[in-house]
């Protein structure tokens, strides 16, 4: 399964989670099976005027991820995640690595 992680900076697995979801600094796609980062890309929607939650949601759907990890999403991003049956794990104030560990501990 691939996870979509909304992070603040690009520091590999030690990137910190952003406190905004749709407007996060970077998006990381992480393969939970092989424990590998597949990509980290700058969020090109973060300075958008309107509908950023939707843009990010659409992007997430296209990425094929089934799990999203990050700060609480806004209502619009949330509606897309829900419609797309994307599992959401809310995590803040930690690194991507810690968030993945917490998610696994919970599951």
């Amino acid at each position: 399964m691939k996870a979509f992680i909304a992070v603040e900076n690009n520091a590999g697995i030690d990137s910190r989670l952003d406190n905004r979801f749709a407007r996060a600094g970077y998006f990381m796609v992480y393969d939970m099976e092989s424990d590998k980062i597949l990509s980290i890309e700058e969020n090109r929607f973060k300075n958008g005027a309107h509908g950023v939650g939707i843009e990010t949601g659409n992007y997430l759907i296209k990425s094929g991820c089934k799990l999203a990890i990050g700060a609480n999403p806004g209502p619009k991003a949330e509606s897309i995640l829900r419609a797309g049956n994307i599992e959401f794990y809310i995590a803040e104030n930690c690194t991507a690595k810690e968030a993945i560990e917490r998610y696994r501990a919970k599951a």
């Binding site: 958008g48 309107h50 509908g51 950023v52 939707i54 843009e55 949601g57 659409n58 759907i61 897309i80 419609a83 797309g84």
Partner: peptide, 8 residues
């Protein structure tokens, strides 16, 4: 305006 979302 990002008013549409499609989940194929």
């Amino acid at each position: 305006y990002n008013a549409i979302s499609i989940i194929p």
